[in-house]
Design a protein around this nucleic acid. Sequence first.
DNA 1: GTGCCCAATTTGGGATCCAATCAAGTACAC
DNA 2: GTGTACTTGATTGGATCCCAAATTGGGCAC
Lengths: 242, 242
Amino acid sequence: MSEGTKADDIALALEESIVSGEIPPGSVLRQEHLSEQFQVSRTPVREALRRLAALGLVTFEPNRGVRVRMLSRDEIREAFLVRAELESLATEIATPKMGDSDLAELKAAERRFSELTRELVETSHAGRQDLELAREWLFANHSFHDVIYAAADVPLIERMAKAARRTFLVKPFWATGADLDDLFHLNDGQHRAIREAIAARSPEGARVLAREHVLSSGRLLEAILDKVAAQARETTAIGSSI
Amino acid sequence: MSEGTKADDIALALEESIVSGEIPPGSVLRQEHLSEQFQVSRTPVREALRRLAALGLVTFEPNRGVRVRMLSRDEIREAFLVRAELESLATEIATPKMGDSDLAELKAAERRFSELTRELVETSHAGRQDLELAREWLFANHSFHDVIYAAADVPLIERMAKAARRTFLVKPFWATGADLDDLFHLNDGQHRAIREAIAARSPEGARVLAREHVLSSGRLLEAILDKVAAQARETTAIGSSI
DNA sequence: GTGCCCAATTTGGGATCCAATCAAGTACAC
DNA sequence: GTGTACTTGATTGGATCCCAAATTGGGCAC
């Protein structure tokens, strides 16, 4: 439809669904079901799944099916380690290359992210769970970093960093609470620091800040996962007492 | 045959052929031809190709075919930048984790690589072109680094670094000559320096050395490519005068 | 030489079909 | 009741045949 082959379209659509949490980790993807859903035969579906498998988003379990990968805590931490490394490199490379318009774009992305962070925290305090807001928030975060990738203009880094970034699932992000506000706002503030270092033409400074920022994002995600896990345990406990 | 599905087997076989230079960059892979070659139908062949495409080894050109990617100088340089970054991280992580047996293994790999480097340089001086030797040499180089990856025990880093490493094609490596000996032996010596830093339990030192080593490997490869290009120009000039 | 049209390939994809495999249930022995 | 073997149903991996659309490489007129 949009562009290229059906297999590509399906792969992209599935990728979106998986990253956004619409299809939860651990699910088994039935070929026939997908072929109905996308109104195609099994052939392009299977090709799309092969692609996702190569990207590490799903795993083939021969004769049993394709399962959406479930990442362990270790794997998530590793993904942030890798991202920290790649992103600091990208930032270093991008710094001397960024013109005024790039910096303006960066500032706009920073501002949008700030707003959404505030919204997300408020919504969360109000006890609501807004998946769409969480998705936008995550998207805004990515946008900020994408400006840097685009300026660095090293496709391989961008590809790999984005691959590592797919561990950053949307789903848990409505599950915040007062005790995480600091982490959220820290995360937010770091964007500004990075931008200022870039504007000050300090590749080394920007590099160090970018690294620290990604690692700190990782700690935020881990804190959120802990919280979700704790909530799940609580729910289970209540459930079992009924 | 070996393990898993046919699509996986084919993908692995093709990957080997491409990296080893048996299938040169720029070739178009015909589905029917491959299905005859591997004695299977087009179905698993196409799935294998999708996987290779996701790994970045080939590109789908809709309705025209699948082409083995041809990397530009820029892309090759970028791949080494990324590898330098990932490898220095892996080395830092691996350093405190490596036991005596790991260090022994590393030393063995280092020694084997030294021998093959000597052989490769000698063979090259004698004017012979031994593709099999070049392949072994490259394999020995990879083995050294693989010991470190294994010790670091971070699968994501390993996967990504190996993806970046596939730019390191075997083919040009018989094309050495006297003026590259220094680079070859420098490269060789750096392995020793890295191992010694690891043995001295200096993660930061090992990290810096690993980074410098990969970047220097990149310079070696670029020098080789220049040489090959120069030879090709020469050959063309002679050819055109006939 | 340039432009245009046609035929041959080749791909993307659909529709069927089948063997191997696995999950789950069932029967059976103990 | 528990453990084991058998049967069954669902699903996958793959083969085979099919066809429309796109690309390519001429040939042919001009």
